[in-house]
């Protein structure tokens, strides 16, 4: 069995999803942290849905949206001439929505925790809102950003239901480590499943350990 392929796919999926979650999660979290809009609770509830919904429910609706007859699926196919569902890109879309609250919530909490006085001090020193965001709010929210990134990565590494619904089980394309382990167990190949599982355990633990150690250093320096 090729152990490398599903593990590499899991790592690649987690990394790409985390990058997208950080890129899109920061503006969403910043808006949620600062808005007084009446629709804030609705947006908060939508972003938090993946925490309470079974992965199969989320996977089902994402599949409907990105499938060949779904609006996103149709658009994607017309643009790139290939289908989104059951592809690596489709997995990224599914993982993005499934892990969204794990990125948004810690980052939002970090933004809400930044002392408003520091932001106002920056404004009175002539710095624009954008510059204040990059020079004060982001550095002061490092811990939340790192936590959001770690949770997104870890949550995507451990995905099973959504990945199976949206990506199926295509070797080298959508068959990530968690599905490969499930396949091996179904085939009674416990030793193969164990090797994959141990590798995943070691990899996940190492990544988390590294990031939390880094996070501690960052917090101490602030």
């Amino acid at each position: 069995m090729n152990y490398f392929e599903p593990i590499w796919l899991s790592v690649k999926l987690s990394f790409v999803t985390t990058v997208f979650l950080i890129i899109f999660g920061i503006p969403i979290a910043f808006w949620l942290a600062n808005t007084k809009s009446r629709i804030k609770p609705i947006i908060e509830a939508i972003t938090a849905l993946p925490i309470v919904l079974p992965p199969t429910v989320i996977g089902f609706y994402i599949l409907l949206a990105i499938g060949q007859k779904g609006p996103i699926g149709k658009l994607y196919e017309s643009l790139f001439d290939t289908q989104l569902a059951f592809s690596f890109s489709g997995l990224v879309v599914g993982s993005f929505f499934y892990s969204l609250p794990f990125a948004v919530q810690p980052i939002q909490a970090a933004f809400e925790g930044v002392d408003k006085g520091l932001v106002e001090a920056s404004w009175t020193l002539g710095k624009s809102k954008r510059e204040t965001f990059y020079r004060i709010i982001i550095p002061m929210s490092k811990r939340g950003l790192i936590t959001g990134g770690v949770l997104s990565f870890a949550h995507t590494m451990g995905e099973f239901g959504v990945v199976l619904m949206v990506g199926g089980n295509i070797p080298g394309v959508t068959k990530v480590a968690s599905i490969a382990i499930y396949d091996e167990v179904q085939a009674m190949n416990y030793s193969e499943a164990n090797i994959l599982a141990l590798f995943m355990l070691f990899l996940s633990f190492s990544v988390l350990l590294l990031i939390y150690r880094f996070n501690k250093r960052v917090v101490q320096s602030v």
């Binding site: 006085g117 106002e120 004060i136 602030v222």
Partner: peptide
């Protein structure tokens, strides 16, 4: 009043 020095 609380000086608002940037801690980082």
């Amino acid at each position: 009043q609380d000086l608002a020095l940037f801690p980082h």
